[in-house]
């Protein structure tokens, strides 16, 4: 990899990647991804059907479904952890619908996010969303209530926003999930 001049795409050294996976890590990336929910990862035959309709591939992201799966299979751990593509996935699931090998590429995306979360490789907005979910019960939350007033609705919606007991219930749930173990957000 050192050989690459600036602007020249580096050769991917598969031997190096394989050795790293063996020596430096307890589990291969692929094994982790399978554990994190992409059970059929290994069935992928790289046909590319998922990429042909993927909004990420179509808008020029680097590690869309097909390539992400391949990179996981060869153990490109560091490069993947540095890339935010999985957090851009719209979860449209068209890939899942057409995958001939039942790989559920979306689950691979999601599993990649779950792996990145363990490494704190997640966007600020995501942390913000999690914090908001914990504090208000809504990932998207706004303090301003002009809109509700304008259309003739009570300012307080019938959600955790107006129901302290319900919010406490949700907090109890969240405190008993992996979110609490990860310590991504303050959870009093």
């Amino acid at each position: 990899m050192e050989l690459a001049e600036e602007g020249v795409p580096p050769v991917i050294n598969l031997t190096e990647l394989a050795e790293k996976e063996k020596e430096e890590f307890e589990e291969k990336v692929s094994e982790l991804i399978i554990e994190f929910g992409a059970e059929n990862l290994m069935a992928c035959m790289q046909c590319g059907a998922c990429a042909s309709i993927c909004p990420l591939a179509r808008t020029g992201f680097e590690w869309y479904n097909k390539k992400l799966i391949k990179a996981i299979l060869v153990g490109m751990r560091e490069e993947l952890l540095d890339d935010m593509t999985p957090w851009a996935c719209v979860a449209c699931n068209r890939c899942t619908e057409i995958c001939p090998r039942n790989v559920t590429p979306f689950e691979v995306m999601l599993a990649m996010r779950r792996l990145m979360v363990e490494d704190f490789a997640l966007p600020t907005l995501t942390i913000e969303g999690l914090r908001s979910l914990y504090e208000h019960g809504h990932a998207v939350y706004m303090t301003g209530r002009e809109a509700r007033k304008k259309v003739g609705l009570p300012e307080k919606p019938p959600t955790t926003d107006s129901d302290e007991k319900a919010l406490q219930e949700l907090k109890t749930i969240l405190k008993n999930t992996k979110l609490a173990e990860l310590g991504l957000i303050p959870m009093e």
Binding site: C47, G48, A49, C50, A51, S52, I53, R94, C95, I98, P100
Partner: peptide, 10 residues
């Protein structure tokens, strides 16, 4: 004849 190496998705 043009070859596309990949499965048509839609």
């Amino acid at each position: 004849i043009k070859i596309i190496k990949g499965k048509i998705g839609g």
